[in-house]
């Protein structure tokens, strides 16, 4: 696969949740509680794309195909876009910009605080995702972008704390993210070993 087709694949992956949602509407009709439906769909999509973007480096290393690295940025930005959609639906459709209700709601609920923190951590990563910022920040860029694991952890926590009783799916996300993080840490340990020798 050349770089262009890899790039196109990233966009296809990023659009899958949107297309899937459209097909759900087509098959089942418009949701009776559209606001709750949009919130759930956008939140799930954000988490899925976040996992996809975190999977790029481990897959790249395991497969030995370094060209796959170009998927990281678009997938991360799709995750960010779904996060923003999630937030926007909550603010605009669920709460109709009623800031008094919104602040009362957010700051009384641990899952909403976790979600808000995850979003806040995500913003600087999206803003500095350009090649220009990558160059400007130099080696600090990588350090900064490790924050994504904190954002992912908070996003999963947001999900775990939200569900009523069947926590299988949120814990599945937690496990996958944990494995992806371990896969990033393990080669790092090899590097450290090599240096200490």
């Amino acid at each position: 696969m050349n770089r262009l087709s890899i790039r196109i694949s990233a966009h296809i992956i990023g659009l899958i949740p949107l297309l899937w949602y459209a097909s759900t509407l087509w098959r089942h009709g418009w949701p009776l509680d559209p606001v709750a439906s949009y919130i759930a769909a956008s939140g799930t999509a954000a988490l899925q794309l976040l996992v996809a973007s975190l999977a790029v480096t481990p897959v790249q290393r395991l497969s030995g195909r370094s060209a796959l690295g170009v998927m990281r940025r678009p997938l991360g930005l799709y995750a960010f876009a779904y996060t923003m959609a999630h937030l926007l639906v909550y603010l605009m459709l669920d709460y109709a910009w009623n800031w008094q209700q919104i602040s009362q709601n957010i700051f009384s609920k641990r899952h909403l605080i976790a979600g808000l923190l995850a979003t806040l951590l995500f913003i600087p990563l999206a803003l500095t995702s350009t090649t220009g910022w990558q160059k400007r920040l130099g080696r600090w860029w990588k350090h900064l972008h490790r924050i994504v694991y904190g954002a992912a952890g908070l996003a999963v926590l947001h999900y775990v704390w939200l569900v009523k009783s069947d926590t299988r799916i949120p814990y599945l996300y937690a496990t996958v993210i944990g494995i992806l993080l371990l896969m990033r840490l393990l080669p790092l340990r090899k590097v450290l070993h090599a240096q200490s020798r």
Partner: peptide, 9 residues
Amino acid sequence: PRWSQADER
């Protein structure tokens, strides 16, 4: 414990 009961949709 997990959400506000102050308002409803």
